[in-house]
Write a protein that binds this DNA or RNA. Structure first.
Length: 283
DNA sequence: AAGACGGGCAACCGCGGAGGT
DNA sequence: TACCTCCGCGGTTGCCCGTCT
């Protein structure tokens, strides 16, 4: 079918923004906000396409942007989140207040990637190059789960501020099946967390159940008594489960059981929770 | 001093998802 | 259900500027 261009190319300016253009865009947004990026350039008197205006605002003109050198803590956060999330710069940016995804992406590509490579660490797998293949499956699995959890958290904050207090992620604790009515008011994405919690804490019994992902971005999760894992929609060593060995599962179960705040997790101690859960600090 | 080179970063491009009709 | 529009994201490009020769 083809896609129509976001704007008529003819007559529209490209390239670096001038201070005058910045001023026009700033003045317009300060006065009217940015409702429709497509319509904004005309109203603001700019000979730019809407996408260009949006990019300029988000990456440069927005008043809450923090510019300048990345701190050591920010670098560590980027590296750790990249290990979990991959090149999902917008998701990473949500954990770095006032930094833009573009800035983080550039910093990764120009600085951090090289640094890891020089240290003998594969910037894709975040493992020493010689051992990259050995435990890639486990890391991939953990990363996928954490990715799903972060997405759920982000949606929770976005959509359910009235239901759940800010900065406080309440992982669903409910009786099986009968609780469904009370859960219908919660974001569906929390079902993944509920199921995860259930299978490891013994509250629920899953017998090779398949939990349907509530969103298109969450993969399927297969759960049963002895193992768990994402289904073949994401790369795994084999279809079905990523963790085949019962002792690995038992170890993870133990770590989870020992996690004090799993049922009602305060995000302010998320780092400690993650450390407890996976044995390394990734947040 | 000047040309070559490479790094850093702002901006562009194309794709995919969400929502509306 | 199909199509369309808009927005947001990630990959890529290309310009600017500092350093090297």
């Amino acid at each position: 079918m083809g896609r129509s261009p976001c704007c008529e190319k003819v007559g529209l300016k490209k390239g670096p923004w001038t201070p005058e253009e910045d001023q026009k865009l700033l003045a317009y947004i300060e006065q009217h906000g940015h409702g429709s990026w497509r319509a904004l350039p005309l109203k603001a008197g700019l000979e730019r396409c809407g996408k260009s205006c949006r990019l300029r605002w988000i990456n440069y003109l927005r008043p809450d942007i923090k510019r300048g050198k990345f701190s050591l803590q920010e670098e560590q956060t980027i590296i750790q989140l990249h290990a979990l999330l991959g090149n999902r710069w917008s998701a990473i940016a949500t954990h770095l207040p006032n930094r833009t995804d573009n800035e983080i992406k550039n910093y990764w590509n120009t600085h951090l990637k090289k640094r890891l490579t020089n240290m003998g660490i594969d910037p894709v797998t975040h493992k020493p190059k010689t051992h990259a293949l050995a435990s890639a499956a486990n890391l991939s699995h953990m990363a996928q789960w954490e990715s799903a959890r972060l997405e759920a958290e982000a949606r929770l904050v976005r959509h359910s501020k009235q239901v759940v207090p800010q900065n406080h992620l309440a992982v669903a604790v409910a009786a099986p099946s009968s609780s469904s009515s009370s859960l219908t008011t919660r974001p569906q994405c929390l079902d993944v967390l509920k199921a995860w919690q259930g299978v490891v804490s013994g509250l629920f019994t899953f017998n090779a159940d398949t939990l349907q992902s509530p969103t298109s971005t969450l993969p399927m999760l297969n759960l049963n008594d002895n193992n768990f894992g994402w289904n073949s929609s994401i790369p795994c060593e084999s279809s079905g489960t990523c963790l085949e060995k019962p002792n690995q599962m038992a170890e993870l179960k133990e770590r989870l059981d020992n996690s004090m705040e799993l049922h009602e997790m305060d995000c302010s101690s998320e780092s400690a929770w993650f450390q407890e859960l996976f044995g390394f600090n990734a947040l």
